[in-house]
Design a protein around this nucleic acid. Sequence first.
RNA 1: GGGCCUGUAGCUCAAUGGUUAGAGCAGGGGACUCAUAAUCCCUUGGUUGGGGGUUCGAAUCCCUCCAGGCCUACCA
Length: 523
Amino acid sequence: MPACTFYTTAIDYTNAPPHIGHAYEKVLTDVLARFERLRRRPVYYLTGVDQHGQKVQQSAEKEGLAPLEFAERCTAKFLDLWKTLDVQFDGWAATTHPLHKQTVQRILQRLFDAGQLYKQRHNGFYSVRQEQFLTDKERNEAGEFGPEWGQVVELEEENWYFRLSDHRDWLLGFIDSHPHFIVPAFRRTELRNAVEKLSGDLCISRPKARLSWGIELPFDSGFVTYVWFDALINYISFAGYLADPDSGLPEFRSLWPARAQVIGKDILIPAHGIYWSIMLHALGFPDDEIPTLLVHGWWNISGAKMSKSLGNTVDPAALAERYGVTALRYYLMADISTGRDADFSEERLRMRFNDELANNVGNLLNRTLNMAHRYRQGVLRRTGCQDADLVSLAGTEAPAAVAEYTKAMEQFEVDAALEAAVRLARTCNQLIEASAPWKLAKDPTLAERLDAVLYHLAESIRIIAVLLVPVLPEAARGILAQLNCPTDPALSDAGWGVLPDGHSLGAPVPLFPRLEAPPAPAD
RNA sequence: GGGCCUGUAGCUCAAUGGUUAGAGCAGGGGACUCAUAAUCCCUUGGUUGGGGGUUCGAAUCCCUCCAGGCCUACCA
């Protein structure tokens, strides 16, 4: 076990602006990392951008920019978004970084020295316009390459290959003996079937004449390395693998293996499940240092896959602007079951925010503080009251919620974790109705019961706030501030009975103003 | 063509092969007043996509069909 919990995300390609899927993955990983911080465990969260490759080179040319300039401009959009969404990462993996290049070249040299790479001539049909080789799947019904490919020539080209298929049997055995390699489990089946059919090696280079925007092979300057040995390497290069001692990068041994590498379902096969795991194996990583891949699903737009060509992408920055970061983060974490797909809907975003945060949690805080001030000048009293409903809340329901929450978070099921927290709030609202503090306040003989109810409510809300910290860092701090509690709690503070006798509560200020639907466009 | 996933209440989802298939929201009825017209209680609603099979027992396992989604398709 490494000293530090390490999470990585896929790095985003700097060819197009971020959409809701990018935001989801980074927020999900942010929540997992913040959960570790809540537990006061060391954590390192690495995310970044993939800046090389042909599409960046082409897009840059189109706009008359140098590739780096184009990539940096797009990178800035991602960085802005992460700041907006409170995504708090520790390491930033930008593949144009010199230290990354250095590690990539060291790794390539190693594999070259170990005989894992070889050069081979390939003959095929090449589209000049699209700058790519064509395979039979590009042929149309007539068995020909259509006009969309422009001029197609038969071309012979040399390239470098990685001996992928040598490791096929190892990977099959590894998948079989490591049930937690892929989360969720059904993706593991899918991967195994794909590996069974694996044949052939992996082309890892492009001749510079065709693609110059990349990292040069250290043993053959006529080529740059293609995406796999560039982008995938970020997970270890920025974690300090093969780095010089004075590089300023983290100590690799303290991070590796990652607790989970968070990726989308589209890049499990073949990129991460096959190429990446075999790359690690070929580099000499033992089986217990091949990290878990946490494979998340997609946000679809009314059932359809989101894509630029359909024009149905969702801009996360605009959503954050319209509804606030709290509502957006909550929705992204609550309304999808980790690993599965979900339908994105602004209506559901508003609904879940209003029902669960405004009406349930927010209003609970608000009414509790109001009653405490109205009946007790905001001062809590710990009493010896042993009424069954209160004993049950303190001894059973609150601890059960914390336990359920913790278990769910450890299994990356953020939606289930949030549900546990929200259910505790619902229990508190029920307690208020059942105990009717406004009636207790009228009867001096029930003063002790009133104090006990108010104390139990405040304690429960405090615990709920602690549980909400990873998903809603700002809002949780807001709740704790109104309770006059420290705003950087640990998970251990979610135990019962932290508030002392005589504790003064702050003034109630609505934290989750209800969201209204935007006016219908007048078209 | 090969593979994987999904199909359960109007919606979003739960249910190690084991009581009468549950919860939130929405809908209907009622209560309360501390509160962000919030909350609380009661309630309507299901041939678990269809059809076979295994079992004392199936939403769950097997076969098959239907619908939707995704990956992959001798590979540079």
